[in-house]
Design a protein around this nucleic acid. Sequence first.
DNA 1: CCTTAAAAGTACTAAACTGGTACTGTATAG
DNA 2: CTATACAGTACCAGTTTAGTACTTTTAAGG
Lengths: 186, 186
Amino acid sequence: MLRISKLTDYGTLILAHMAGSPERMHSAAGLAEALGLGLPTVSKVLKTLGRHTLVTSQRGAHGGYLLSRPPTQISVADVIDALEDQPFGLTECSASAGVCGMEGECRIRDNWLRINGVVRQALQGVSVADMVHPTSGSPFGPQRRPSGPDPGGEPAAHRLHGPATLGSRMTAACIPAPRADDQEIR
Amino acid sequence: MLRISKLTDYGTLILAHMAGSPERMHSAAGLAEALGLGLPTVSKVLKTLGRHTLVTSQRGAHGGYLLSRPPTQISVADVIDALEDQPFGLTECSASAGVCGMEGECRIRDNWLRINGVVRQALQGVSVADMVHPTSGSPFGPQRRPSGPDPGGEPAAHRLHGPATLGSRMTAACIPAPRADDQEIR
DNA sequence: CCTTAAAAGTACTAAACTGGTACTGTATAG
DNA sequence: CTATACAGTACCAGTTTAGTACTTTTAAGG
C-alpha cells in the first residue's frame, strides 16, 4: 500500500513530541496522555525505539524515556528502520539481496534499487526536530510560514484506537501542538 | 511496511515487459508464461490497468492488451496509482484530507505532505521504459553501464506463487531479460 | 525493608488486508 | 457457431497488524 505502519507513524509522533522538550525525561504514560494514544501501544513503540537506541530508558520510579541524541540527528528514516522489521525497500527483491534467483539477469531490480535510494534520501533528510518546528530549515526548500500563532483550542481529548473511539476522527500522524501546561515529568 | 503491494509489483513487471515491444499486442496468457506468473493474477492486474487506461484491451480471438501510450510516458507512479486503491501518501492523514480532526493545528501533517511530494516525484521520474532499458536516460544521473551483452542463460522456468513453487527463489520484481524467441502474439 | 512507579519481556487475540482462484458473462475472428 | 480471450464478481485462505494482558525487573523514597 506504500504506507508506513501505524506503529511507525506513532513512533514519529512520539519522537516529534519529545523533540519539543528534548532535555526532559518523558514517561510512557505522559506521552500517551499528551498524544491521545493507548498506553500499552506507546510503551510498545518506546521499547522498540529503545532497543534501536533512538531513546534511552530509565527504569524505576521517576523513570522514563529520553532522546538519546539531539532531535535534529534523528531522521524519519531512522524511525522507519527501527519500527519496521523488514529491511528498507519498496519491493521485496530490492530490499534484500539473494531473494531472487534471477538477480543476475534482472534489469528491473537495478532500477528499484535506485528508486529506493532516492526515497530513502528524502526520508533521511527530515529529522524529527523538523517535524515539530515550522519547516523552514528542512531540506525541502523555502516553505510557507504557518498562518499565525496557535489559537490555543481545547486540549483535543481524542483517542485514535480502542473500540469506542473510532468516530473521533483523529489520525495517527496528527498531534496537537505541544502545550505549555501538558503534564510531563518535571 | 513501506512496500508496494505484490500486485503493483507485478504491474510494473508486466508493463516493463510490454515496453520491450510496445507496438505488439500481448495476451494475458503470453505475459503470464513469459514472466512465470499465474494467469488469473496477470489477468486481474491487466484488467485493473485497463480500467485506469494504462493499457487498452482487445476482446475476442486474437485479442490481448496494448500499451495505450508510449512506455516512456507511463511512470511507476502511474502504475501505483492504478493498482493501489488507497490514495498516495505515506501516512493515512497525509494521503487524504479531512481524515483527522486536528488537521488545522497539526504541524506534522505538513511535513508528511512534503515528504510525500518528494517520494512521488522520484516515482514519477521513472518510466516503465526506463525499467527495461539500461538506465542511462533515467533521472537518476549518470549510471554505470550494464556489464556486458546478455549471456542468454536458460529460460528460467520459475513461478513465484502457487503452493508448489515457493522454493524457486524468484521474486515478483525480477524478470528475465526479454528474449527474441518468447511466445507472444505475432 | 517495603511500597510504589515505571520500564522490559512475552505471549495472545481479533481484525484487516492481500493475494490468489473460481465462475459466469461478453465480444470477436474465422 | 465455435474457439479464444477479456470483463466482472465474489469468495477464501493465509498473513500481517495492532492492540492488550500479564509477569518480571529495576529504581526511588519513606
